[in-house]
Design a protein around this nucleic acid. Structure first.
Length: 557
RNA sequence: UGGGGCGUGGCCAAGUGGUAAGGCACAGGUCUUUGGAACCUGUAUUCGAAGGUUCGAAUCCUUCCGCCCCAGCCA
């Protein structure tokens, strides 16, 4: 029986699509598209749009196209295009054979423009950019008609053809839609629809020297692909009358509708393409896939899973109000996913040597460890134990504060899957730094349980010094310290911390780039592409929730 | 200022005239060989504000306030 009490509510877009399907609009067909411009890498904000577009299509048994909005050759490259394809696929979506390019419609777009001219709906303007701006008016004052606005159809046709043929300098002429220079909507004040750019296009080469503007190319591209619902972000809301105008004036094969939703904003994160580009070009970060970047490639390298990103996108909803989602919600999504599926492993980030004085020298043994307590089918593995171990420096305090349950002089703790040990003495170097712990173990507690039922308050992770593998850990923190960073915000100087002298359990020997693990008690880590056998490199995806850190923080206040 | 949108707890977000879902975060607690996970409990007499309509309003009307977007030959 379906649980009627918990019928999930749907967002306003799905509601509207459902209504259209119900009344058999477009024959009940649903067809969306994801239309990125190949001028940068996709980020988590795009993921929201991808999940929406592909998601809506799938839910209504429809289709979603991938379409490159490549109408501005000065910014677009094949590298970006390829990264976009890779990232959409990685996120888990498939466009089958429906990959399109606005640039493939340039011919059509040109013909439609000729039609517009013939119908008296477009004209060639020869004002320069500054003049056009002046003539446009302001928010409160209407614009004025260009002196070229009433050129004859013949003259317009001739000029436009010459624009296409080449020979004109950039900016000498533009094709404008003839709408209304006094419109209160500035987008309707005779918007430019074609401009001259003597720049080769990354796919079309030098075939064109005039390129269509987004506002003109987009509705027509949608119509040519028989898109039914064209979903875009809020800032295009007042472009909608222009979107509709294009479709009304031209004999296009279908009539899509544009629906706008609020783009994603994340706290402590910047999602503007311009700023992201700057971070990359100025070398503030190490490329588009720097694990601190909110790009899909960065998140991937960081260790985020597509499932977590999709689940995050589902959790934030789709609405029209401007919102800033707490980055903690994203972190929750990845923890939730990784908790269920990741292999547990013991790794010591900052090693502190421990000598078990009463453990026989030369002796060693292997202990059973559970691979994933959330998944019995993940099985167990053997972990070597020895007289000399490493534990985490943070797990020992010479003078433990209240509520610190871990190791301290005289304190007994459990070593996970191993024995209880009691600290007898802390050895210091000349500078007074604790460099070694002398401990005693209780042989009766093998595996981690005591016959007398006593149970230490703390369980520590550890590695056998003789068996552990050296590794590097890259610990990431938020890229910005400001909750709402702007274009000038400095990055968090501690956004990357390199820890080079880690010791990890030997089962990690064969770990390959992309493999994910939970380092018990520390966090989730992902093997970096820089990693090599014998020189392992792990990226920290996200920390585990850390109750002690919270207590310690409140203690300091 | 002209136009277009939006205002429900700290952050998201349901709700579409019948008496405020859910998630995140936070705070307690249970359990625990990860101070993890899981589980339980708590957190809006109130929906930007003020009027009005109605037996009854977050939902309808009026006015006001606040926030976002638009003056690229970017998308």
């Amino acid at each position: 029986m379906p649980d009627l009490e918990f019928t999930a509510s749907v967002d306003f877009i799905r509601e509207r699509v459902a209504e259209d399907v119900k009344v058999k609009k477009n024959g009940g067909r649903v067809h969306t598209r994801f239309p990125p411009e190949p001028n940068g890498y996709l980020h988590i904000g795009h993921a929201k749009s991808i999940c929406l577009n592909f998601g809506v299509a799938a839910e209504f048994k429809g289709l979603c196209n991938l379409r490159f909005d490549d109408t501005n050759p000065s910014k677009e490259t094949v590298e970006y295009e390829e990264s976009i394809q890779r990232d959409v696929r990685w996120l888990g979506f498939d466009w089958d054979d429906r990959m399109y390019y606005a640039s493939d419609y340039f011919g059509k777009l040109y013909e439609y423009a000729v039609q517009l001219i013939k119908d008296g709906n477009a004209y060639v303007d020869s004002l320069n950019a500054d003049e056009i701006r002046e003539y446009r008016g302001t928010l409160t004052e209407p614009g004025k008609n260009s002196p070229y606005r009433n050129r004859s159809v013949e003259e317009n046709l001739n000029l436009f053809e010459r624009m296409r043929a080449g020979g004109f300098e950039d900016g000498t002429h533009v094709l404008r839609a003839k709408i209304d220079m006094a419109s209160p909507n500035i987008n309707m004040r005779d918007p430019v629809i074609f401009r001259i750019m003597n720049v080769p296009h990354y796919r079309q080469g030098s075939k064109w020297v005039i390129y269509p503007m987004y506002d003109y190319a987009h509705p027509i591209s949608d119509a040519l692909e028989n898109i039914t619902h064209s979903l875009c972000t809020l800032e295009f809301e007042d472009h909608r009358p222009l979107y509709d105008w294009c479709l009304e004036k031209l004999p296009v094969p279908s009539r899509p509708v544009q629906i706008e939703f609020a783009r994603l904003n994340l706290s402590y994160t910047v999602l503007s393409k311009r700023k992201l580009l700057t971070l990359v070009t100025e070398g503030t970060v190490n490329g588009w896939d720097d694990p601190r970047m909110p790009t899909l490639s960065g998140l991937r390298r960081r260790g985020y899973t597509p499932e977590a990103i999709r689940s995050f996108c589902e959790s934030i909803g789709v609405a029209k109000r401007d919102a800033i989602v707490d980055v903690a919600q994203l972190e929750h999504a990845i923890r939730d996913d990784l908790n269920r599926r990741s292999q547990r492993v013991m790794a010591v980030l900052r090693p502190l040597r421990v000598v078990i004085e009463n453990y026989p020298e030369g002796q060693g043994e292997e202990l059973d460890a559970i691979n994933n307590p959330e998944d019995a089918s993940a099985g167990t593995r053997k972990v070597p134990f020895n007289r000399i171990l490493y534990v985490e420096q943070d797990d020992f305090r010479e003078n433990p504060p209240k509520q610190f349950f871990r190791l301290a002089p005289g304190r007994e703790v459990r070593l996970r899957y191993a024995y209880f040990i009691t600290c007898k003495e802390a050895i210091k170097d000349a500078a007074g730094k604790v460099v070694e712990l002398r401990c005693m173990y209780d042989p009766a507690t093998r595996g981690g349980d005591s016959p007398d039922g006593r149970s230490p308050k703390a369980t520590l992770h550890w590695v056998s010094a003789a068996h552990a593998l050296p590794a590097e850990a890259r610990l990431y923190d938020r890229l910005f310290n400001e909750e709402r960073p702007d274009n000038d915000s400095p990055i968090n100087p501690n956004s990357l911390e390199l820890v080079r002298s880690c010791q990890v359990e030997p089962s990690l020997k064969a770990a390959k780039p992309g493999d994910r693990f939970q380092f018990e008690r520390i966090g989730y880590f992902c093997v970096d592409p820089d990693s090599k056998p014998g020189a392992l490199v792990f990226n920290r995806t996200v920390t585990l929730r850390d109750t002690w850190a919270k207590i310690e923080k409140s203690l300091k206040k």
